[in-house]
Simulated assay, not measured.
Amino acid sequence: MRLSELKVGDKAEVTALKAEHVIRRRIMDMGLIKGTRFKVLRVAPLGDPIEIFFKGLYFAMRKTEADGVMVCKVGEVGDALPMSGSKT
């Protein structure tokens, strides 16, 4: 699943980065690497940009950038699962 397919409130974990080299480097420099858990905070009405929260950082990215981030959903709105900690 791609990060761009998530909805507001979804929680996920990064499984791979398949973006072009420059974008992948920027995303990794910000700390969004394989194994990082995050929560989708906002998605603009047309789906671009997408704002996520991880490691105390609010990070906004374009939909084309989010298409290159492969994720695995770990929770949804109101499930009371923490964003970090043991894997489910």
Rank of each mutant, 00 (worst) to 15 (best):
C72D: 08
D67M: 00
H21E: 15
T15H: 05
K11N: 03
I50D: 02
A80F: 11
M61Y: 13
A44S: 14
K39Q: 02
E65W: 00
K34C: 00
G78H: 01
C72V: 12
F54C: 00
M61F: 14
E13K: 05
K34E: 02
S84Y: 05
F54A: 01
M30S: 12
E65T: 04
D10C: 03
D79F: 08
E76L: 05
V14E: 00
S84N: 04
G78R: 03
R37L: 08
S86T: 07
E20N: 07
V69R: 05
V74N: 04
V43M: 06
V71E: 04
K73F: 05
L57E: 05
I23S: 14
T64R: 13
I33C: 13
R42P: 08
L6P: 05
V40A: 04
M61L: 15
G31T: 08
R25Q: 09
V40Y: 02
L41Q: 07
D48S: 07
K18P: 11
L46H: 12
G47E: 02
V40F: 04
M83I: 14
V43G: 06
R2G: 12
D10T: 01
S84T: 06
S4F: 12
K55T: 10
F53N: 07
F53H: 10
D48Y: 01
V22P: 14
M70T: 09
K87F: 07
L17K: 01
A44H: 13
S84Q: 02
L3C: 00
V22N: 15
G75I: 13
I23W: 14
L17T: 03
G56K: 00
K11P: 03
A16D: 10
K7M: 09
G35E: 05
D67K: 00
G47P: 03
A19E: 13
M70Q: 09
T88F: 11
K7Q: 09
V22G: 15
M28Q: 15
G75P: 12
F59C: 00
G68C: 10
R24P: 04
E76V: 07
E13N: 07
R26D: 14
V40M: 04
